[in-house]
C-alpha cells in the first residue's frame, strides 16, 4: 500500500516520463495563447468575472512597475548633496527627495485645504413620505389610515417605551432597529463597530430626526470611548459625530465615517 511520500519516492526511483520536461516547457509556452483563446470565447457571467480578475491583475502589475520606477527615482537625485563643507555624519547622505514622499505630501495638503467643517456627504437624495412610510389600515373594517410604519432602519434609544399600541402613530419595526454602526476613522484608516448614542440630524426632515431614522447622510453620535481619543485639554472623548455613508436599508448594516 502506498504510504508517506510515495510519489516523490517513485519519481526518485524510476524517474519521470521521458518527455516530462518537454511537455512542461510546451505547456508554459502555450499558456499565453490558451489564455487568449479563453478570453476571446468566454461570455456571460464567467466573462464578467474573468475580466474583473484580469483588470485587477493589470492594475496590480502597473502599480508594481510604478513602485519600482519610484524607487529608482531616489537614486538619481545624487546632485542634491549640499555643496561645500559638510559635517562627517552627513557625508555619505544623498538628497532625500523621494518622489513617493513628495506625492504623499501633496495629497495631504490638498486634503487639509478641503476644509475642516464640511461633512463627507454634503448632498443627499430626497426621500418622499411614500417611500419612508407604509400606511397601515386599522379599524374593524380597515378603513382608518392614520397609522404609519417606518420602512427604513431606525435608531431607538435605550430608555424608549412604546405608547399603548392602539394610539401609536409611527411604528418602528424591531427588525429594522439598529444599535451599532461600523465607523471608519478617516485618519487612522481603521474601522470600528461602535454603539450609536443618538441621531443628531437626519438631513431629510426634522421629523425623521426625532424618529431616529437612519438614512444615507444622517449624522449620528457614536460612543468612541473604545478608541481612547483625547481632547487637546487631555480629557477622554466618548461621544463623537459620524455621518452615515451607505444606504442602510439596502445593505443591512450601517457604515459611517467619523467627523473629525
Amino acid at each position: 500500500m502506498p504510504q508517506n511520500e510515495y510519489i516523490e519516492e517513485s519519481i526518485r526511483r524510476h524517474g519521470r516520463r521521458l518527455d516530462y520536461e518537454e511537455r512542461k516547457r510546451k505547456r508554459a509556452a502555450r499558456e499565453a495563447h490558451s489564455a487568449a483563446t479563453f478570453a476571446k470565447t468566454v461570455h456571460g457571467l464567467r466573462a464578467k468575472l474573468y475580466n474583473k480578475k484580469r483588470h485587477a491583475e493589470k492594475i496590480q502589475m502597473k502599480k508594481t512597475i510604478k513602485q519600482h520606477e519610484e524607487k529608482q527615482a531616489t537614486k538619481k537625485d545624487a546632485e542634491a548633496v549640499p555643496e561645500g563643507a559638510v559635517p562627517t555624519y552627513l557625508l555619505d547622505r544623498e538628497g532625500q527627495q523621494r518622489a513617493k514622499i513628495l506625492s504623499n505630501m501633496i495629497k495631504q495638503k490638498r486634503k487639509e485645504k478641503a476644509g475642516k467643517w464640511t461633512v463627507p456627504l454634503p448632498k443627499v437624495r430626497g426621500i418622499t413620505e411614500d417611500e419612508m412610510f407604509k400606511v397601515i389600515k386599522t379599524g374593524k373594517h380597515k378603513t382608518k389610515q392614520w397609522k404609519r410604519m417606518i420602512t427604513k432602519p431606525t435608531f431607538v434609544g435605550e430608555g424608549f417605551t412604546r405608547k399603548p399600541p392602539k394610539y401609536e402613530r409611527f411604528i418602528r419595526p424591531m427588525a429594522l432597529r439598529y444599535k451599532k454602526a461600523n465607523v471608519t476613522h478617516p485618519e487612522l484608516k481603521a474601522t470600528f463597530c461602535l454603539p450609536i448614542i443618538s441621531v443628531k440630524k437626519n438631513p431629510q426632515s426634522p421629523l425623521y430626526t426625532s424618529l431616529g431614522v437612519l438614512t444615507k447622510g444622517t449624522v449620528v453620535e457614536v460612543n468612541v470611548s473604545e478608541l481612547g481619543l483625547v481632547t487637546t485639554s487631555g480629557k477622554v472623548v466618548w461621544g463623537k459625530y459620524a455621518q452615515i455613508t451607505n444606504n442602510p436599508e439596502n445593505d443591512g448594516c450601517i457604515n459611517a465615517v467619523l467627523l473629525v
Partner: peptide, 26 residues
C-alpha cells in the same frame, strides 16, 4: 437569519436585491 428578517421588510425589487447581494457578500 438577519438578512431573511430584513428581507421581510423589503418593499421593492431593488431593495430586496441589494439585501440579497449584501447577505451573500457578508
Amino acid at each position: 437569519k438577519e438578512y431573511v428578517r430584513l428581507l421581510k421588510f423589503g418593499d421593492s425589487l431593488y431593495r430586496c436585491k441589494q439585501l440579497k447581494r449584501s447577505a451573500l457578500g457578508r
